[in-house]
Amino acid sequence: MTHIILIFIAAAVTNNFVLAYFLGVCPFLGVSKRIESAFGMGLATTFVMCVAAILTWLIYHFLLIPFNLLFLRNVTFILVIASAVQVVEMFLKKFNPVLYRALGIYLPLITTNCAILGLALFMVMRQYNFFESVAFAVGGGVGFTFALTVMAGIREELEMADVPASLKGAGITLITAGLLALIFMGFAGIIAT
């Protein structure tokens, strides 16, 4: 049980998907301007991550391994992810149209979010069992949401600041991300036991 919790904490904090593994940097730069949209995007991504993790784990262990089709991993994973996003999109459109409209174009873009495919690949590489994979996905999503929301909060403040023209936008955001990454480095090694 502690093992599962440790995987969750590792994915969320010490080995944060965005700040340590560079997964999900595109939406991190693109959607982190307002706290509400950042948080919403984070939640949607976390949900897709869990769905994708479960589906890819099942397919990997019950289809690819038994039939010796490991080289089809990439193709099947990305197709599963794309379908999962499609389903989530239809689900949101029907049950939460407000969030659906707020996320707009960014919802289908979750498919190309390296965090989802990256999560599936890491999980397979580390040979997590089913529950470890779910913990990993939830932790990763929470960490992603956390990083995104913190970044959005900082950017909202930065808008009043006097940023040099050439650094406005992507430049200052990346530098801020770098400082955040430095801070998160302090968490590393806490879970080595």
Binding site: T173, A177, A181
Partner: peptide, 18 residues
């Protein structure tokens, strides 16, 4: 480390824009 990657890219983009 990751922090260095973010910082370098940020400054490079700033340089590029300049």
């Amino acid at each position: 480390m990751p922090a260095g990657a973010f910082l370098t890219l940020g400054f490079l983009i700033g340089l590029f824009n300049m």
